[in-house]
Design a protein around this nucleic acid. Structure first.
Lengths: 339, 339
DNA sequence: TTGAAAGCGCTAACAT
DNA sequence: ATGTTAGCGCTTTCAA
């Protein structure tokens, strides 16, 4: 029931156009190496036959794909999507295609994709997930294709890296809350062991130390970067004998959770308490109240990492193999000065 | 300076293992066709040489890739990310890999990717963008590889399709607002000409007609699915001699914009006015007030479309080539009964 | 259960 | 400017 004709190949076109396959190939890939008349003849033959290039054959022959794979733990995470935008645009600019692999935070799928990447499925690899080739196979064969990691550095790896200066950023935000006159400044943490969390918490500590304020363990609450964790933290703070003056949540979702939690208890933010977040995700500005937060230049992270990768792929020496991008405080309505 | 050794090929492994290349190939792809002893020898040789398969070669030979391409207009759009999750999981379940192409709403990039897809870069195509192969090339050669479109139907195409029953959904939501006792029900539209917009507006009209309420043009405002459009609409409503009782925004971002706009003018939602959205994006529940909205089963759209595609790829007859998924009202705090 | 051998469809020397 | 030719690295009949 499938009476399809054989797909036309390059020699079908060549025959019809009355030239050699080499000429067809050139007419398609490097038109200016071919006489206009010939080019036209080829174009006509392509039309007529309905020829489409076979990529597998080309890739096999050229040993290149002009494609780059971005491995993302979770495409539905609003954080990564902006980074991807920067990657996508930059690649396009340089004539590469982007393919995205969503691993769903599943190590198996991660390995799968990485393996395929090594198998020549793409020319380069962008790792957005802070780990790869986990302990599973310890043969530790170094990545055979150019690879750059971004957003999270991979523990125990010296892969080229582009990230936000998380520690500095967290220090700055804490310092900002202190400058606002707050003294009891709480902190809602990210997942234990997470590398971002470590950096941000270190920054928080740095700022308090600079003001000779002791860490108050009752103000430091666990979290996991979810809205729910923020709500839970709010409840926990409410059960304290004395509320903090301000809380720095180590990401925006938790900051929003805090606001909801406090609002639900009849406490207004920022009148009763100041709340600051981290990331400046899309909805931070739209929130009620609009969130004061640390803006990570997610787009820029993608752009820089991609530039680095392209240099690597094309055999140039990248300007730098380690980039730490500054983050800036975005002051909105969830914090206020205490005077 | 690049003293890399030649990548090992299958015959290197074969030689080392003392077998033929055919046996190596089988040991890798269909282990149970090979004697355990041989299999072990091959495995050892693979280890020793550090052999990795060359995908281009395999794809060329087998004429398959076991990969599927999802073409997305904008990965940073929260709507699509959930759909992608459903796609990704379903594909994985069936042994396919997903690659995502972000076209950045750019027709050129769209065509690029589609072309590569036809060139055998993948086995199937998932179109999330509501158009493809736009007027540019009118040679209208039918897609050579299995293709399913989702989310938005493509005008003037009879591609297999999975979508939300937008018209029904919009009718239901409008009906709901009417049931709540609202009479002057406003509508904030999506981009003119957008197919979703047409369906949703039709549903809005259906509901009003069923109650014999005339369309009031002053209550129907243009929009473009952005938060800003919602804010602008709020301002426009505020300048009316009489405010509507309720407004149905044709997506969540605009509903949030409306709430901000009214809140900024000192009007409380839902006390002064009810606001309903469409989509139930991630932040709808977290918003202040939590948004009453139409929940599209985005994950399910992805799942069903992917099943359909796999059937197509593997030569089975899909159960259906046209699926319209119902959407359900999620009642939250941005609407209230008027009594 | 294994091996020999013939391509899959293209591109890039090299020659003309 | 164009043609000839030799593979790229794998899988898969077919035969043993």
């Amino acid at each position: 029931m499938d009476e399809r004709v054989r797909k036309p190949r390059i020699d079908d076109v060549a025959r019809l156009a009355g030239v050699s396959t080499a000429t067809v190939s050139r007419a398609l890939a490097t038109p200016d190496q071919v006489k206009p008349t010939t080019r036209a003849a080829v174009a006509r033959a392509v039309q007529e036959t309905g020829y489409v290039l076979n990529l597998a054959a080309r890739n096999l022959r050229t040993r290149r794909t002009r494609a780059v794979l971005a491995v993302v733990p979770d495409v539905s995470n609003v954080f990564f999507t902006q980074v991807l935008r920067g990657i996508s645009d930059t690649l396009h600019l340089h004539g590469y295609r982007l393919v995205i692999a969503d691993t769903g935070n599943d190590a198996r799928r991660e390995r799968d994709h990485a393996e395929f990447a090594q198998a020549g499925w793409v020319d380069g690899l962008l790792l957005l997930n802070g780990r790869l080739l986990s302990p599973a196979s310890s043969d530790a064969r170094p990545a055979a294709i150019p690879t750059v990691s971004l957003c999270e550095r991979i523990t125990g790896s010296d892969l080229p890296l582009v990230e936000t200066a998380n520690r500095d950023a967290a220090r700055d935000m804490t310092e900002h809350l202190l400058q606002l006159g707050h003294r009891r400044v709480g902190y809602v943490a990210g997942p234990a062991g997470n590398i971002l969390e470590r950096d941000r918490f270190a920054g928080y500590r740095d700022a308090l130390a600079a003001h000779a304020i002791d860490l108050d363990p009752s103000l430091i609450l666990p979290g996991d970067y979810t809205l729910g964790a923020g709500e839970a933290a709010a409840a926990a703070y409410l059960s304290l004998p004395e509320l903090p003056d301000a809380v720095f949540a180590s990401n925006d979702a938790m900051a929003m959770g805090l606001i909801r939690g406090f609002a639900g208890a009849g406490l207004s933010v920022p009148d009763a308490i100041s709340i600051a977040g981290f990331d400046d995700i899309e909805f931070a500005a739209a929130y009620n109240p609009a969130l004061t937060t640390m803006r990570q230049e997610r787009n820029e992270i993608g752009v820089q990492a991609t530039r680095m990768l392209i240099d690597l792929i094309e055999g140039r020496e990248p300007t730098s193999l380690q980039i730490s991008l500054p983050a800036a405080i975005v002051k909105r309505n969830s914090t206020r000065s205490r005077r």
